[in-house]
Design a binder for these strands. Sequence first.
DNA 1: TGCATTAGGATACAATTTGTATCTTATTAA
DNA 2: TTAATAAGATACAAATTGTATCCTAATGCA
Lengths: 200, 200
Amino acid sequence: MEEQKNVRRRGDDLLESLYEVTMKLMEEIKPTNITFQQIAEAAKTSRSVLYRRWPTTFDLLQDIYTYKAQRLFDGDFLDEMKDTGSLRGDFIQFLNFYQQMYKEIGAEVLNNYFYLRMQDKENNKEPVVHTAALDKYIRAMETILEKAQSRGEEVKKVSKATLMLPFDMIRMENLVRPDNISNKRLESMVDEVLLPVFKV
Amino acid sequence: MEEQKNVRRRGDDLLESLYEVTMKLMEEIKPTNITFQQIAEAAKTSRSVLYRRWPTTFDLLQDIYTYKAQRLFDGDFLDEMKDTGSLRGDFIQFLNFYQQMYKEIGAEVLNNYFYLRMQDKENNKEPVVHTAALDKYIRAMETILEKAQSRGEEVKKVSKATLMLPFDMIRMENLVRPDNISNKRLESMVDEVLLPVFKV
DNA sequence: TGCATTAGGATACAATTTGTATCTTATTAA
DNA sequence: TTAATAAGATACAAATTGTATCCTAATGCA
């Protein structure tokens, strides 16, 4: 017997509320063990609402993290990049932007997003968010390297996979050593890795 | 009404069977949606057996992937490393070993392992596997670099975090671009990244 | 303003799953 | 050989699932 549910919301309001409630529930209950029943109760809505949208909790989780990641990548933080006058400075700024991005939405969101995407590879859902973010990233990297060139700092020609190195490194740090990302660490990533790799 | 279950196994036999069955089930059913009922039936055993060991499916999954990762890192593949005569050759051999490791057990195992560890960070379980593997790795890297030194190939002094780069890169490749790891890619990782980073 | 459409919410129901408890019995170790 | 151990069967109430049907508030369009 489901009690009176009095809040009545529609569309995005409802959706965001469901996302929030689910995220909050996951602070106590592990994603593997969460149920639609619990979510419906906590969100003060009916299970029908959930089943109309998602066949299983897994699909709900996928949507949650895709939504969060989308908002993240849609941000225009890269537009705010300035020419710092040196490749080193540009790299540090670049890493700082991405690190900021991880901090704002939380490393867990991004890590979960990437993980759930991977679990679903057989379904081959369109990785819209992912590719959009990658395009943005690649363009930013190319700009940085071109500016260095025109500034007189000679730059190496690298493969596309290697061009992903800064992005990969930030991701790895947030996945494996999330508590350990200081400004000093970002600088050492630039001085010990990025500059030797990209600068002649 | 549970039907007659005739297979009777104990200890590790039983445990490994449960792991295998669960892994196999997960090829069809997402980890979030799997049930003890299904596992017990597929494994031809009783739910009691499962509940005695794990309170929830999440805990079972954690044990599965920890076990798999453990077996992986326990391997003595690093002992088989030869002196190839050059830092470049040693790096390529080194990456090849780790890549082999990922292939044998499957990249998904390690990815799941890291994911479940992340989800459990508040519990702060001892990351036994992780640190043991790291020690092994660090020692191998130091050996490689020392050999290069004594060979006359000058080597840079880097931070401990940067010393993780080869390991991180293999992990990242398997996480993000698992279908794309050719010998050629491994060589480009050495030529475009590792040598510029570690060699003077 | 009024009316049709849309979508949230309540309820019901059978089937499945959960968590726990109790009992039997094959296997192990002493 | 016997006692301890652990696997397996069964039962049961509570919770969850998946689906279907009905009601009604909000929306949009004429």
